[in-house]
């Protein structure tokens, strides 16, 4: 049984700063990490590998050459092979082209996949679009926001507990299928020194634009349907009263009076 996990390397956005003069991101010194939701997707895959025999996990990422670091991290966490989809021609891709490129790369490198797992969204773009778009391009059933991913005993079906607005639902689909993942109750084992060493011996493949059957004008920025025309800093925030060095009783009374004044307490 073959599981493909699509992953993305992202800047650690909590530390991203905007240049006040140009309004663009200051990328220098910003650490790149494996997108947390992609890591959760991998956790679900590793759990399936532990539970069932003959499961192999391929992790695939489209990105610049340094995205290899994120793939390596996945190999340390238990994936069996890494596939780096990289080419200057892929640069500037919107979610549609990213999905198209990844779907084609999956068809090429793991044509006999059974299950594709992706994170529910990436913390830099937050679109949550690439997963469902890959599912559509590959004509697969999709289940989004999964927190538990299981297989039927015949391994013909995937059974997913998903987060919905009002709680949870358990949904089944026949394989092959695509599941977008949120954090589950999977306990992640920190990679040991041996895992780190072994990861470097696992196979790592590379896919370029020439390997894919997609015309050059449909790749990267050229193939994107959406275009960014302007970036700017978010609008300024209001700044109200800040009270410091108050006794607990005094602080509670201040909030109480504020709530009264604003008529939240009648």
């Amino acid at each position: 049984m073959k599981i493909v996990v699509c992953i993305k390397q992202v800047p650690e956005v909590t530390n991203v700063q905007v240049d006040p003069e140009t309004g663009t991101l200051i990328r220098e010194g910003v650490k790149s990490i494996l997108n947390p939701f992609c890591e959760y997707a991998l956790d679900h895959a590793v759990r399936l590998e532990q539970e069932f025999d003959d499961v192999s996990i391929s992790v695939i990422s489209m990105g610049p050459p340094q995205a290899k670091d994120a793939l390596l991290r996945c190999l340390e966490l238990g994936a069996d092979e890494g596939i780096l989809v990289t080419d200057r021609k892929f640069a500037g891709a919107d979610s549609w082209v990213t999905a198209l490129t990844l779907a084609e790369a999956i068809r090429l490198t793991v044509p006999d996949y059974d299950l594709i797992l992706v994170g529910k969204q990436a913390i830099d773009g937050d679109t949550a679009q690439v997963g469902p778009e890959i599912a559509e391009i590959l004509s697969l059933p999709q289940i989004t926001y999964g927190i538990e991913v299981g297989l039927s005993s015949t391994r013909k079906q995937v059974r997913v507990k998903q987060e919905v607005e009002r709680g949870y639902e358990v949904v089944e689909a026949s394989l092959p299928a695509l599941v977008t993942c949120s954090k589950g109750e999977v306990v992640r084992r920190a990679p040991s020194f041996l895992d780190v060493l072994n990861a470097r011996k696992k196979p790592m493949r590379s896919v370029s634009a020439d390997d894919l059957r997609i015309p050059a004008e449909e790749l990267g920025l050229k193939g994107s349907f959406t275009q960014v025309v302007k970036v700017f800093p978010p609008p300024g925030k209001k700044c109200g009263r800040l009270l410091q060095n108050l006794e607990t009783d005094q602080a509670a009374a201040e909030i109480f009076n504020f709530l009264k004044e604003k008529r939240f307490i009648e």
């Binding site: 549609w96 937050d126 679109t127 679009q129 469902p132 999709q142 989004t144 926001y145 919905v164 607005e165």
Partner: peptide, 23 residues
Amino acid sequence: ATPHGRDLAPRVAARLKLGLTAD
């Protein structure tokens, strides 16, 4: 951009080959 909206919109966009901007 509810859970169902975010499940549906990219699927429709990919099928009809449309641009989609989230949130």
